[in-house]
């Protein structure tokens, strides 16, 4: 079996895995970081979004071996102990989630979006969420959360 090594949420991790192991399965099953979710099997829903070397990717559409040597960040990396990340706080404050299943992908997408453009408009955010489905909220509060979270991230 091939081996893989990468940094996940600041920790060096690795192991022998089957080549066909998806990054999301490596994260969920091997590392037991279950915040990253799987909501579909055709790369549409975005519940599995993580950051690889600083950019957002669908971890269900990437082999773990493709992340060799990469810096991977999952939803579990954001909070600092009991202190939520400003984007997480914004989602809570603006009721940007209901069932919470799409939320990790939404928040990771939002953080990537905000890093690229701190002064997001409603249109930027709606367009930027093209790869993320939410079935609960009707998106409005997610959009508000992200705009507010992006502002808060600027400090």
């Amino acid at each position: 079996m091939p081996s893989v090594s990468m940094t996940v949420n600041g920790n060096a991790v690795g192991g022998d895995i089957e080549a066909r192991t998806l990054l999301v399965d490596f994260i969920r099953e091997h590392l037991r970081l279950t915040g990253t979710h799987v909501g579909c099997d055709t790369s549409q829903c975005g519940a599995c979004v993580v950051h690889v070397d600083g950019t957002s990717v669908k971890s269900c559409t990437m082999l773990a071996l493709q992340a060799e040597g990469c810096q991977v960040e999952t939803i579990e990396s954001l909070a600092d102990g009991d202190t939520l990340h400003p984007m997480q706080e914004a989602f809570r404050e603006h009721h940007g989630l209901q069932c919470g299943f799409c939320t990790p992908g939404m928040v990771m997408t939002a953080v990537a979006m905000a890093k690229e453009n701190p002064n997001l408009t409603e249109s930027d955010v709606r367009h930027g969420l093209e790869g993320n489905f939410c079935r609960c909220t009707g998106y409005q509060n997610i959009v508000e959360s992200i705009i507010a979270g992006a502002k808060a991230m600027q400090g």
Binding site: R28, F91, R92, E93, L97
Partner: peptide, 20 residues
Amino acid sequence: VRRTEDIRFVSGQGTYIDDM
């Protein structure tokens, strides 16, 4: 009132069936 459950949901600490 802001939601109690959100603390775990926004930080990836929810427990859904496939997490068990």
